Computed example of a mutant assay.
Amino acid sequence: MLKFVKNHMESIIGIEIYPIISLLIFFIFFVVLFWWVFTAKKDYIEKVSNIPLDNHNDDIL
């Protein structure tokens, strides 16, 4: 079974680019995420972190 898959994958032209693209997407996503975390305003983070503790959302129920 593995031999069949390996031979089948080798027959596809240009397949070697897909792992590179997925690695780049993964890397870029986490670089952007880290950049956002380090540049986020402290007031915004404090406001969002207090949302679960806020009791003023009683009108939703």
Results as ranks from 00 to 15, higher is better:
residue 14 G to D: 03
residue 51 I to M: 14
residue 23 L to F: 08
residue 25 I to W: 02
residue 49 S to F: 15
residue 38 F to Q: 13
residue 41 K to A: 04
residue 26 F to L: 09
residue 20 I to F: 05
residue 51 I to S: 10
residue 17 I to S: 09
residue 47 K to R: 15
residue 27 F to V: 08
residue 51 I to Q: 14
residue 33 L to N: 05
residue 24 L to G: 07
residue 36 W to M: 12
residue 40 A to L: 14
residue 23 L to E: 03
residue 51 I to F: 13
residue 22 S to Q: 06
residue 25 I to V: 13
residue 45 I to D: 09
residue 40 A to K: 09
residue 17 I to E: 05
residue 13 I to P: 01
residue 29 F to L: 04
residue 50 N to E: 14
residue 50 N to P: 05
residue 28 I to K: 02
residue 34 F to H: 08
residue 24 L to N: 01
residue 30 F to W: 10
residue 34 F to A: 09
residue 27 F to L: 12
residue 13 I to K: 09
residue 30 F to P: 00
residue 24 L to K: 00
residue 13 I to C: 06
residue 22 S to P: 00
residue 21 I to Y: 04
residue 37 V to P: 00
residue 26 F to K: 04
residue 47 K to P: 01
residue 51 I to Y: 13
residue 32 V to D: 03
residue 26 F to Y: 08
residue 29 F to W: 01
residue 38 F to G: 09
residue 14 G to W: 02
residue 28 I to A: 08
residue 36 W to E: 10
residue 49 S to Y: 15
residue 52 P to I: 12
residue 13 I to N: 10
residue 31 V to T: 04
residue 24 L to P: 00
residue 15 I to Q: 01
residue 43 D to F: 05
residue 14 G to S: 06
residue 43 D to P: 00
residue 30 F to H: 05
residue 51 I to E: 12
residue 42 K to Y: 07
residue 19 P to S: 04
residue 46 E to C: 11
residue 46 E to P: 03
residue 51 I to G: 09
residue 19 P to M: 07
residue 32 V to K: 06
residue 37 V to Q: 10
residue 49 S to L: 15
residue 16 E to Y: 01
residue 28 I to E: 00
residue 28 I to P: 00
residue 17 I to N: 07
residue 50 N to D: 15
residue 29 F to M: 06
residue 41 K to T: 05
residue 33 L to E: 07
